[in-house]
Lab assay of single mutants.
Amino acid sequence: MSRVPSPPPPAEMSSGPVAESWCYTQIKVVKFSYMWTINNFSFCREEMGEVIKSSTFSSGANDKLKWCLRVNPKGLDEESKDYLSLYLLLVSCPKSEVRAKFKFSILNAKGEETKAMESQRAYRFVQGKDWGFKKFIRRDFLLDEANGLLPDDKLTLFCEVSVVQDSVNISGQNTMNMVKVPECRLADELGGLWENSRFTDCCLCVAGQEFQAHKAILAARSPVFSAMFEHEMEESKKNRVEINDVEPEVFKEMMCFIYTGKAPNLDKMADDLLAAADKYALERLKVMCEDALCSNLSVENAAEILILADLHSADQLKTQAVDFINYHASDVLETSGWKSMVVSHPHLVAEAYRSLASAQCPFLGPPRKRLKQS
């Protein structure tokens, strides 16, 4: 649940008159999402009104509101027999009622949201009550392989729920002597030191190019640089560091992050930047690179990204790559990247197969709970 924001200063709310007192009302909304995959969808019983329910879910471990999704594969009634019906059901509720908006969509073979439908307002739910769409999607369109909505005969539904909580009022009075504290510009100011090479005390040599930097900042941000300058190493004695395995453009992006906490060109060089972040123990930059690479996972590059993640101990990226390969196994196994990995990294192939087997055979063990970014 997000923290209630402070109200904007009255002088910034309007260029008009300023009242002596004010009130700011925040209506709290808890948002969460749920993904439900139905394997072997074409084998569902086709009687009209037949119901399939998901397991229950909530916004978190401490949330007492429990929900589930309900599907009628062949419609709810005679009117909707040519459609799939989809509903959000409130299973248990400690209150007399709650209000919530919802959005349903289908994830296609690429994991993209399609055929989205959402409620136009927050509906009133009581325990045992459901709301949804009797005519969510035509069955003939859903079952047509050309539309790519049932890869490997799996129907994957994605649901986003927004639950309306209580409202909170914050009130106060205006004073004539309003003090406005300026925003912190530390990142910009440190970035200026790097860009202008002011007050530098060490030189970093990268592929024949020299960059002036500040030992204190490098040591504070990177345990690797800290070790170089702290001990009686040649880098500490000469205040000069030779860097041979990072390209200059990648190095500059890494230094921008060290000084400012930002990497504006990360998406263009996420793979190389991940390697640099791993070498210099820049954990936050490493996770930022993992996130960017996750966003660009595809059938063509899944094997290469899995190898990269394994090489640099990028655990979150590795998990996402394995899950992606499992979901698109029939396509990924035909790529040149996968065939190369079979020869060069057989242990990763074995890991992917083990994960695929456990996903398809849940009876082999208890269900695993899916539970950071600093």
Rank of each mutant, 00 (worst) to 15 (best):
V29G: 13
C44Q: 05
E118T: 11
L190G: 10
N296P: 14
R198D: 09
E300G: 04
E247I: 04
H312F: 05
V349D: 00
V343E: 07
N296T: 11
L88H: 01
C159P: 00
F199G: 15
I217V: 13
N301E: 15
N39Q: 13
I137Y: 02
C203K: 15
V4G: 01
S344R: 12
L364G: 15
I106K: 12
L193H: 08
K95W: 14
A302L: 01
E78Q: 13
P8E: 04
S59D: 12
K154T: 12
Y353D: 00
R370P: 05
C203V: 15
K66L: 04
V179Y: 08
F158I: 14
I307H: 10
L317H: 00
F32M: 14
R121Y: 13
S6G: 02
P8T: 05
G16Y: 08
K215W: 11
K318F: 11
P264V: 12
N72L: 13
G261A: 13
E283V: 03
C23T: 14
L186Q: 08
M1F: 00
K31A: 05
C203Q: 13
G172H: 04
T260P: 00
T175Y: 04
M176A: 03
S2F: 13
P9F: 03
F136K: 00
E189C: 02
Q127C: 13
K238E: 04
M48I: 06
P151K: 01
I305Q: 07
S298E: 03
K369L: 06
E189P: 09
N244A: 04
D272E: 01
M117C: 01
A275G: 01
M341V: 05
G172V: 04
I27R: 10
K53H: 04
E47L: 05
H214W: 07
K81G: 12
L155E: 00
S171L: 03
L142R: 08
I258H: 00
F41K: 13
Q173G: 02
C23M: 02
E20Y: 13
M13A: 05
L371K: 15
K286T: 08
W131G: 00
Q209D: 14
E189Q: 08
K115A: 04
P182W: 10
Q360V: 08
V30W: 13
V4I: 06
V168N: 09
M48Y: 11
R139E: 11
A220W: 06
S222T: 15
A109T: 09
M255L: 02
L308E: 06
E97A: 15
A352M: 09
E234M: 15
Y327F: 09
A220P: 14
S226V: 13
M255I: 03
S355V: 06
Y280N: 07
A329I: 02
L88D: 00
R354S: 10
K154R: 08
F251G: 09
P94V: 03
P94I: 10
K252R: 04
W36S: 01
G128P: 15
I106D: 00
I305D: 14
E46N: 04
A213I: 13
P182Q: 04
E210Y: 15
E78Y: 14
E232A: 08
E97T: 02
K31Q: 11
N196T: 12
E334V: 01
Y34M: 06
A350D: 10
L86T: 07
T114P: 09
K31T: 14
A109R: 08
K215N: 11
E351W: 07
F199H: 13
L149E: 10
D166S: 11
N108S: 01
K286Y: 03
R70E: 08
P5C: 06
K95S: 06
S119C: 07
A100K: 00
K110N: 09
A329Y: 08
K134R: 06
F211R: 14
L76F: 12
S295V: 15
Q316Y: 10
A321S: 06
F211E: 15
H328C: 11
I38D: 00
G192F: 11
C93H: 14
I137M: 07
K339E: 02
C23W: 02
M269L: 05
R121M: 09
I305P: 00
Q373L: 12
I27M: 06
Q120C: 13
A357Y: 11
Q212D: 15
D77W: 10
D331T: 11
C289H: 00
K53I: 01
V71S: 10
D140E: 08
Y34S: 05
A352H: 10
N301T: 14
R354G: 14
F102G: 00
A19T: 03
A100L: 04
E46I: 04
I170V: 02
C203G: 13
E253A: 08
P10F: 11
L88R: 00
K134S: 01
L149H: 05
K110D: 15
Q373K: 12
V349G: 06
R139D: 05
K318G: 12
S119N: 00
A19Q: 08
A227M: 05
T25S: 01
V206K: 01
K238F: 03
I217M: 14
V51Q: 02
H312Q: 03
R124A: 15
N40P: 05
I27V: 01
K318T: 11
Q127R: 10
N39T: 07
E195M: 06
H312K: 15
R138H: 09
E78N: 11
F257K: 01
Q165T: 03
G75Q: 14
N72V: 11
L282Q: 08
G148W: 09
F158E: 03
K101P: 11
S55Y: 11
D77Q: 14
L364T: 14
I27E: 13
E304I: 03
S2Q: 07
A303V: 11
C68E: 12
D272V: 02
M35I: 05
V206A: 14
F102E: 00
F211G: 14
L333Q: 05
P248W: 09
M117L: 13
L84C: 06
A292V: 12
F257C: 08
D188Q: 07
L89D: 14
A187C: 09
E113P: 12
K372A: 08
L149Q: 02
G337L: 11
K135V: 12
M341N: 00
L142S: 06
M1K: 00
M13W: 06
F225D: 00
S14G: 12
L348T: 05
L371V: 13
L150P: 02
K115H: 13
G191V: 03
S105K: 04
P5Y: 10
K103N: 12
P9E: 13
P366C: 10
V246E: 01
D140M: 01
T175C: 02
S222P: 00
H214L: 03
L190M: 07
L297A: 01
